[in-house]
Each structure stands twice: as structure tokens, then as C-alpha cells.
Design a protein around this nucleic acid. Structure first.
Lengths: 332, 332
DNA sequence: TTGTAGGCGTTATCAT
DNA sequence: ATGATAACGCCTACAA
């Protein structure tokens, strides 16, 4: 325990070869005679030698590591995103560093610091200020995840407009009036888009949209809170369009807890199509977004972009509405 | 964009001083005359110089970074844990690297690799094999989080036995028979402890415990699945003790979705006391565990332990039962 | 107060 | 096939 690790030089001395040979053997590059290789390998094994990342990083001028920056990590969304991202990074032999800002005020510093510890950074939505984004991009390749491209920084995102189809469905197909929107448009580009699509659908259906959204977060508990705010008021909405499934689930729980019938008294829709969406009763009508693919595409773009600039600048992944029962549709 | 970053030497030349002085100024150590400092600072500012982490790490022989290894990151538990951990790390001026294994078979390699990129590692529960834990501990300080100490590796965990009090409460105070336990004891030390406390409480109350638990994961969707398994069977349980709040919430949702009354037809308890626990209807009876503190304590122990070996070896944080309505207690 | 020079551990070039 | 040696960028005795 705590045996100071040996260095190339020491291994070289023990194996009676030069450091160059040890390096060649340990990383399997270049030509080394069978005999020498075995001798060196034996010493490496015996002393448990492992090349130091510090030295290697400096010599190779690369970290073999990329980072992904999130605002938080509650909920299945970030978990999926991470898995997609990591799967691709792993394939490229690159490690992944997750950085969570938790909306801390000094988080921009952490991101900047991170910039000098990795070969590239994927930044989720509005986690850092535009100014910071620029500075980071000046140091390492950056890809915006679930946001808009900016100043030459490419982006990967999902098509949020599909939530408009859901809204139209509620308005036109079901004939509901008085819809509410749960989500904070100022919180992230995704929610901004969704709120706008929600409004646009109202305009197209020539129905007056609510003036304001219910500006809460994206966690389940926020949905429960929203349910309280909406349902205990004087004129509860007939249907509520949520910025994501977690809040929709929260609203559903809140509504059922109040003895309301869903969709009878209140229709509810979400966004993401997380596993829970099809497990609850009634099942959740939502928009399916390829979260894993989103993460994977981001990683690919980031890692390939480490070399060549100027590939895709704005990848928008397709999404699709999933009609189940929480909106009032019959079970198929 | 892509302007190759300047090095100490170049800044030194521009400021007409030595590299030593630049270093002194940039890191604020040693004595530098007011005049010189300002001149150097101006150049640093002007060219946006920031010392390379690569060089610094190698020279200082430390990364200024610790890692925390998780099996996954769905749910509020890991989010809280991370925040507690980061708050302390931040105070020590240390960065935090989050590594998620996702139960991947090759994840042990990632952890090993990580060992040479950070100054210390906190490993959650059963995320790595014992053998791997040993090898990692041979390279850097390690703390086990939510698990037992092992081979000189200290641990920080919560007192899981309190779930026995909950079980006793259901058995004795409410007189329920036929309890079920949801959670996979093989999945993590925490669940192992909880399952054992559940059984022990049965023995003390002289009631026969169920032979087997419902061995599912710790996510909400697992709870919904468990509800299906338990409630659609021939002899549904009268009460179900869940390994954590997420699954308890899932069971609750599943039960309510089947038209059952909770706690009338089925009593439910959880573990953690997450925000949702007190927001659902009925509110969840559970065990409160100081998750944030758990993370914070782990970080402190890890970072302090970077220097001196031999501090606390097994910190067990207190937990307390929280009686609400899902167990059948009246609303207070 | 400031500068010189060696070292941190690795990789890679260029001889041999 | 192998070895000497120069980077890589920074920090820090030690010297001046």
C-alpha cells in the first residue's frame, strides 16, 4: 500500500534496456524483438508498472478524456444521455468526465478549469453563460448539447416542435380548451422551444394560449407542485402540457392524489417517453425523443471534431408523438 | 479559436522576466515587487494566459482532483450525494470527477484508469469487485461510500438498521401480517443491510418473514414492476417495505393505478426521505438518511486522508424513522 | 527581488 | 532492434 510507483527509467534499469524500449513494449508500438519484449513484460508484470497518466498526458499533449457538462443529474434523462455519450466515447478509447453545475454561481470557473483537463467538452443547454462558452471554445473543441449552435460552436438537439402536434391534438382532436404549460422557458433552450411550439399550436388553432407558463423545474416534485398550483386554483385547466415526462408524472400523481380522474377531469402530456411513461395508469401521452442517440451523436461529433473543424453544425434529431391514454385517447 | 496557448516561457519573454517570476505571479506565491507583478499580470491578462494543467500536474505531482464512482445516476439520491461531496471538495479547492459504471462489465478498467488521473477515489457500494478495490487502493487513497470498510479502506455509510424499526412498527403497532420486501440484497451493501434488518425485525416480533425479497432495482419503474408482481398474484401482501423511496413511490403509483387504497389495502414504506416522499398522497412513511452529509463526510475523509492515513475507519451516520400516512398512521 | 537550472514521467525522433 | 536525448509545460530549490 502506497508503494511509490516505479517509473519508466527504473523499469528500464531493471530490464536492462533503454526507456524507449520500455515505452515501446508497454504501449505495443514499434519493433521489439520477441526476447526483449518478454523480458521487459516480465519486469513490468512483476513490479506492477503502469505508465503515469501525468507524464503521458504531457508528452502526448492530450488527455484522452472529454467532458460533459450538466446542470444537474436528477431523473432518467441525464442518465440516458450519459450512457449514449459514454458508449461512443468508449469506442473511441476516450474517457468521460461528468461535470455537474447544480446552477452554482461559480460553476463557470469549474467549466473553464475543466477545459484544461480534457480534449473536448459537451455543454448541455444553458448551463454556462455565453461569454464562458466562448472562452471555453477558444481553448478546446466544444459541442452544445440540447441547445442552439453559437459562434461557430456546433450543436446537437432534438426536434422540440413535435410538442406542437401534441398541443394541436389536445386542442383540435379532443376539443379541449384552457390548456396550461408546465415548465420554465428561461431555464433551458429545450423548454424555450417547447413553450414556443405550444403557443404556436394555439395560434394555428385560433385558440388563445395562456399568457404565462407555470415556471417550475423539470423534476417530478416540480410537477406535484404544479398540480397544486393549477388544481387548487379557481379555474383549473382542462389539460396540461408538461415540458418533460418527469413533471407530467408529478402532475399526474398530484391529480390522482386529489381524487381527480385523468384524463376525465384533466388531460396530461409529457416529453421524453421515459420508461415510467408507459408504466403508469393511465399511460402517458408524450413525445419520444432519442435521448441515447442524442448523447451518442454529441460524443461522435465532439471526438471527430477534435481533429477537423467544420463538420455538421446543427444536428436536429427527429422526435415523434406517442399517443396513449393520459390525453383522452382510447387504449388501442 | 484554436490559438495555440502560450506557455510560461513565452509570457516570461513578453514580460521580460524569468519563468520563475511568471509562475510566482500566476499562482500568487513568493515575493514579487509590485511593479513587476503588475507588468506580468498585464501580459497574462492581455494574452489570456492560463497555466497548463498538464505541466502543473506533472510538476506538482498531484491532480487537484478526486473521483466518485457510482453504479448509475438515476434518481435524486445520487444527485444529493454528489452535491454533498462536491461542496466539501470545492472547499478544499479540489475538482470532482464523476464516474458512472452503469454495471458495465469492463467498468473496473475505467476505475483503474481513473486511479491514475486523480488524487483519491470514493467508491459507492458494490460498484467494483473486491480485487479491483484492492488494486485501486494500492495506487491512491480510497473511501467506500455506502458500503463496509475493507482491507484498510475506510467507509462512510448510513445506519440501515432503522428500517427494522419501520418493520417492527408495521408488524407490532399496526399488526400487519404478510409483509413483502422490494429490493435486491445482492445489488448493494445498503440493500443487503436493509433486507437483513427487515428479517431481524420479523424474528424479534416472532413473525415469519417472507422467504425471498422481490429482487428488483432501485428505480421508480422497478417499483411499478414490483407492484404488478405483488398485487396481481394470488396472495398480495398487506404491506410492502421498499429498499428506497423511489421504489416505494413506484409501488404506490402501481397500487393506486389498480384502484387500491393506500394504506387501507396496502401499506407502503420507503427509505431516504426524498422530496417526493412528503408530496405524494398519502405521504410516505420512510427512514430519513442524511444523504448530503454522507457525501460531504466522504469527501472530507477522502481529502484529509490524502495526507495522513489512519483516521476514522467506519463512519456510520444516524438515520431516523419518519412516520407519515402510507403505513396507516393518522395524519398528525 | 529575480534568475538559472533541474526535475516531474512519458513519448518520439534520430542515430546506431 | 535498440539506445540517447530532446521535448512537453510547469514548479521550485538554489544562486545571485
Amino acid at each position: 500500500m502506497g508503494n511509490k510507483r516505479l517509473t519508466v527509467r527504473e523499469i528500464a534499469k531493471l530490464a536492462e534496456v533503454s526507456v524507449a524500449t520500455v515505452s515501446r513494449v508497454s504501449r505495443g508500438t514499434g519493433q521489439v524483438s520477441q526476447e526483449t519484449r518478454e523480458r521487459v513484460l516480465r519486469i513490468i508484470e512483476e513490479y506492477g508498472y503502469r505508465p503515469s497518466q501525468m507524464g503521458r498526458t504531457l508528452a502526448e499533449q492530450r488527455h484522452g478524456m472529454v467532458a460533459i457538462v450538466f446542470p444537474g443529474l436528477a431523473g432518467p434523462y441525464f442518465s440516458e444521455l450519459t450512457q449514449g455519450f459514454e458508449s461512443q466515447a468508449m469506442e473511441a478509447g476516450t474517457g468521460v468526465h461528468i461535470l455537474v453545475t447544480h446552477h452554482r454561481p461559480d460553476s463557470d470557473d469549474s467549466v473553464l478549469d475543466m477545459a484544461s483537463r480534457v480534449d473536448g467538452i459537451a455543454i448541455h443547454g444553458d448551463t454556462v453563460r455565453a461569454e464562458t462558452l466562448r472562452r471555453v471554445a477558444a481553448e478546446v473543441p466544444v459541442v452544445v448539447l440540447a441547445g442552439r449552435p453559437m459562434d461557430g460552436v456546433p450543436a446537437v438537439r432534438a426536434d422540440n416542435s413535435t410538442i406542437g402536434e401534441l398541443t394541436r391534438h389536445l386542442l383540435v382532436d379532443h376539443g379541449y380548451r384552457r390548456l396550461a404549460f408546465v415548465g420554465n422557458p428561461g431555464g433551458s433552450p429545450d423548454v424555450t422551444d417547447r413553450w414556443e411550439a405550444f403557443q404556436a399550436a394555439h395560434r394555428q388553432a385560433r385558440v388563445t394560449a395562456p399568457r404565462n407558463p407555470v415556471p417550475l423545474g423539470l423534476q417530478q416534485s416540480d410537477g406535484v407542485l404544479a398540480a397544486g398550483e393549477l388544481l387548487d386554483g379557481r379555474r383549473p385547466p382542462r389539460a396540461v402540457v408538461c415540458a418533460n415526462d418527469e413533471t407530467a408524472l408529478g402532475v399526474l400523481i398530484g391529480a390522482l392524489g386529489r381524487g381527480l380522474s385523468v384524463p376525465g377531469d384533466l388531460a396530461i402530456t409529457g416529453f421524453d417517453d421515459v420508461p415510467m411513461a408507459s408504466l403508469v395508469q393511465p399511460r402517458l401521452t408524450t413525445v419520444r425523443q432519442p435521448i441515447r442517440e442524442l448523447g451518442a451523436t454529441t460524443a461522435r461529433l465532439l471526438i471527430s471534431g477534435l481533429g477537423n473543424r467544420g463538420a455538421v453544425m446543427d444536428a436536429v434529431l427527429a422526435t415523434e408523438p406517442v399517443f396513449r391514454e393520459s390525453c383522452g385517447c382510447p387504449r388501442t
